[in-house]
Simulated scan of single mutants.
Amino acid sequence: MPVIRVLNRISDAVATVAAWLFFLIGVMLVYEVASRYLFNAPTIWAEEMSRFCQVWAVFGAAAAVMRHGGLIRVTLLTDRLGPAGQRALEVLALVIIAVFCVVATYYGWNIAADSYAIGRTSATMLDLPMWWSEMVIPVGMSLLFLQCIAEILSRLMGGPLWPTHDPELEE
C-alpha cells in the first residue's frame, strides 16, 4: 500500500537524522571533555546542545523503532496465542499507543505554543527558546501516531507480525 510505504520512508529518514544527531552528541561531548580537561577552557554550549540533540533524536527515532518492532513488549500472553490472537492484540496495543500520541501531541503543542507566545527561554547561558526543545513532543508523537496508523493498516491487511522473541538471545 503506497501510504504505508511513504510513512515507513518518513520514519526511516527521521531515524537516519536521529542517528546523525547521536553521532553529533558524541562529537560535542568529546570536544567538551578535551576543552575542559586538556585546555582548562570549558564551553558554555556543549552540554545544553547535546541534551537538545538527544531529546530530538530519541523522539524522532521512536517511529522507526516501532516500525522495526523494537519497542519494549511483554509477550507472556501473546506467545501463547495463535497468529489471529497475536494480530488482534497488536492492533489493540497500536490503537492505545495512537490514542496516547494524540493526547501527547495536543498537550505538547499547547505547551510549546505557550512558551513561544510568552518568550520562555532556558535557564542557561545560551538562553535558548524553550519551544525549540518542547516542540519535539508534538513532532515526535505525530510521527509515532502516523507510524501506528501504518502498522495498524499493515496488520489489518495481513502484514507480518512483530517477532515475539529475539533470536540473538537464544544463542
Rank of each mutant, 00 (worst) to 15 (best):
M49P: 07
M49A: 15
R51E: 12
F52D: 04
F52C: 09
Q54D: 02
Q54H: 14
V55E: 09
W56H: 14
A57N: 09
A57H: 07
F59V: 02
F59E: 12
G60H: 01
G60C: 00
A61Y: 05
A61P: 11
A61V: 12
A61N: 09
A62W: 11
A63K: 03
A63Q: 00
A63D: 08
A63E: 12
A64Y: 05
A64I: 01
V65I: 15
V65W: 01
V65F: 01
V65A: 15
M66R: 10
R67P: 02
R67W: 08
R67V: 03
R67C: 11
H68T: 10
G69M: 13
G70N: 08
L71V: 15
I72P: 05
R73G: 14
V74I: 14
V74M: 13
V74E: 05
T75F: 10
T75C: 12
L76K: 00
L76D: 09
D79H: 01
D79M: 02
R80G: 05
R80D: 00
L81V: 04
L81I: 09
P83S: 15
P83V: 14
P83D: 15
P83G: 12
A84Q: 15
G85R: 00
Q86I: 03
Q86A: 13
Q86V: 13
R87N: 13
A88E: 08
A88F: 02
A88L: 14
L89T: 05
L89H: 10
E90I: 03
V91S: 10
V91Q: 08
V91K: 09
V91F: 11
L92C: 10
L92E: 07
L92N: 03
A93W: 09
A93L: 04
A93I: 10
L94M: 13
V95K: 01
V95H: 02
I96R: 02
I97D: 06
I97K: 09
A98L: 02
A98R: 09
A98D: 02
A98E: 05
V99E: 05
F100Q: 08
F100S: 03
F100L: 08
C101L: 05
C101H: 03
V102Q: 03
V102N: 03
V103H: 12
A104N: 01
T105D: 06
T105V: 03
T105A: 07
T105L: 03
T105W: 00
Y106A: 06
Y106D: 06
Y106Q: 07
Y106P: 01
Y106W: 11
Y107A: 00
Y107N: 05
Y107L: 09
Y107S: 04
G108P: 00
G108I: 06
W109C: 05
N110G: 04
N110E: 06
I111T: 12
I111S: 11
A112V: 00
A112G: 07
A113H: 11
I118N: 00
G119R: 06
R120K: 14
T121R: 14
T121G: 11
A123V: 11
T124M: 10
T124P: 01
M125H: 06
M125D: 08
L126Y: 06
L126S: 00
D127E: 14
L128R: 08
M130S: 15
M130H: 09
M130R: 14
W131H: 15
W132N: 05
M135Q: 06
M135V: 11
M135G: 15
M135T: 00
M135D: 04
M135I: 04
V136I: 08
I137F: 11
P138L: 12
P138A: 05
V139Y: 02
S142T: 03
